[in-house]
Write a protein that binds this DNA or RNA. Structure first.
Lengths: 207, 207, 207, 207
DNA sequence: CATGAATGAGGGTTCATTCAT
DNA sequence: TATGAATGAACCCTCATTCAT
């Protein structure tokens, strides 16, 4: 019943399949980033990928699942990129971690916009984002616990403080970079925000 | 012939209409709070309100609009309640403002969950939340500018710092109270979070 | 969004609704009878009923449910019609019961064809048919038990015998009237079949 | 480069092909018996058979055709097994024929369930079952015609009576063994049913 | 002979919205 | 004002079948 020509066939079926899958992923990623999750239909995705409706379901169960796949890629990159062990003074290290985070986020900001949309109603995606956040929080928390033990800090609760600081930077990123939800756009540039947030962080925690 | 029963007729038609409208609003508010925005249909709302489908459209254009109406009520309460002018030391004032905010948010947390959902794709609702946030930011900013002028602060950018601090408290509220997106639930109780956030805030800003 | 004219509106909405529902039922009944269950789509039904796709779902959950509704009507009629208490000799009474059954079945034979189709895979419909059969079986069984007690019968097991006799007549009806699954069509006419089956029945049971 | 593994190669290609075909048949037979016809997809069959989708179409045109193939095997066995010429008294011979039929049916009951499903809408399968039934009917009919000629019988129409008796036993088998469509399960065991049906049959026909 | 990626027709279902009464 | 039956666009998803390798 197939009347229209199909994709250029290849010798290697596996490679062909991988390419199709990745074409669908690329199409979905672009659409989620430009139109958001809700306005992206499966029809949109397969049109853009140049494959048929049925092909989508060969690789993904539904829209949520392809989204989760894309998200886990983004999340992996976000964590690994910001994991570079910086050197220098404490202040420099804090700054460079925050800068790495915000820069990485900025590259993904359109997609992260969708991610927050989906996280508000899909438990799986919420969990993925929670876990990413959790990794950052844990890293900070461990660090704070050590500093506290060394007597370098004010009297803080490392669990709550690490949560507060991570939330501050993360949702600054969402609000400012993904949604434009801040007043006075012009006051904000990445360098200034990184500096201000890092200084705040440093004074809040260390003696 | 017994007609299908309608609402109890009143002397004052206006009052009756107002009551119908308010029944719809109450039903919607409950549903948005329990099921979230996406899973609440207009059919659900009119069923719960005990009015007919058509009646909904007499008072509201669509689901977004009734949501916006409810949101503006919540937003008004959130701003006015946290506006109580506290007395006492600076630290006490910061704490009592943060406590007022988080307590008010907590009362609305189920509805605010929906509010964040909607804000991720509806410009009108996003704007309403932005404006609420803007009021808080402005209040802090003005305050910081005065304190800076008085030389009481570290070297901060009041625009960015006020944004960072408001975001920190606001999204702590969403993440923790509305979505349960934090690790180690047991470490968190309202008093501890208020204290920790306020101390952080104070040290970050004031000399 | 409704652009095309809708059904002629009526003063009495209830009556209008009942009429729509019944139009859908009539359309479905005709289609199931002519095309069978599998080849009848919901699109077919609403087209034939002259209503829109959505209207179907206002009255019925799915194809199985509308089928079950139609079946229960047919089943009711089949049982009540064959329930007429006949008078006359035993042989006459047996014949008239069998004739009533086969004549009623014949009127419904096209629909019963679908009923057997559906019963082979839908538990609900299978149960409905089973219950109808059960009523016939019970009636015969009770009768046989009394006759056995009076010593009028051969040595029979009323439970199994009543089952065998009912199955014989019922599936003669399906095979012959609904499906045409018998050889030598010309040997069969209703009168002959009724006489033969009744005589067989009588000799098999009574001394 | 390691190719994807294929079926164990054989000296004799024909044998290999026959084995593939038979693997598909076996898989299909199991699936039809467990899940019924409608819930068995071609994907299920090839998965279970361990062959690729395309291979199915090398051997069978569609699901109906593979089903018909399996059915003709079952039908052959059912007729030949019940064809054993029994000796002994008339009553013994009737009983042993009925017992052979019901026992054979019982072994195939899961598959016969599917057979009835398919027969309700597929003319080919309906015909195959009709022909099997026709053979039984013809056998009985011929026998009855001879008995009538010999004056051993009541005044019966051999064509109709043979049909009635075959239908009775056949659909007792479907209803009871394949579908469980009888009340009072506990009253039924194969021995009792065989005895009761045979006695009924005997009294109904012979003087 | 065997493969399996790709196809797309074909069906299903929901729900915001209208409009005659 | 209030009603609620009717609408139909907009989605979703499955699965038999093909065909280049």
């Amino acid at each position: 019943m197939a009347k229209t020509p199909r994709k250029e066939p290849r010798a290697d079926k596996k490679a062909m399949a991988a390419e199709t899958r990745s074409a669908i992923l690329r199409a979905a990623q672009k659409l989620f980033s430009t139109k958001g999750f809700f306005d992206t239909t499966i029809a949109d995705i397969v049109d853009k990928a140049g494959v048929s409706r049925g092909t989508f379901y060969l690789y993904f169960k539904d829209r949520e699942q392809i989204f989760a796949t894309l998200l886990s890629q983004a999340v992996d990159e976000m964590f690994s990129l910001s994991a570079s062990r910086p050197t220098g003074s404490r202040q420099t290290r804090i700054e460079s971690a925050n800068r790495a985070y915000l820069e990485t986020f900025k590259r993904h900001r359109a997609f992260m916009r969708s991610a927050l949309q989906v996280a508000t109603f899909d438990a799986g995606v919420a969990k993925a984002l929670s876990e990413l956040r959790g990794k950052f929080i844990d890293r900070i928390r461990t660090h704070l616990e050590r500093s506290v033990a060394r007597g370098e800090c004010h009297d803080i609760d490392p669990a709550i403080t690490s949560f507060l600081l991570v939330i501050m930077v993360e949702f600054t990123a969402y609000s400012w970079l993904s949604f434009g939800w801040q007043p006075d756009k012009d006051d904000f540039d990445l360098d200034k925000v990184v500096k201000e947030a890092s200084a705040l962080w440093s004074r809040a925690v260390y003696k």
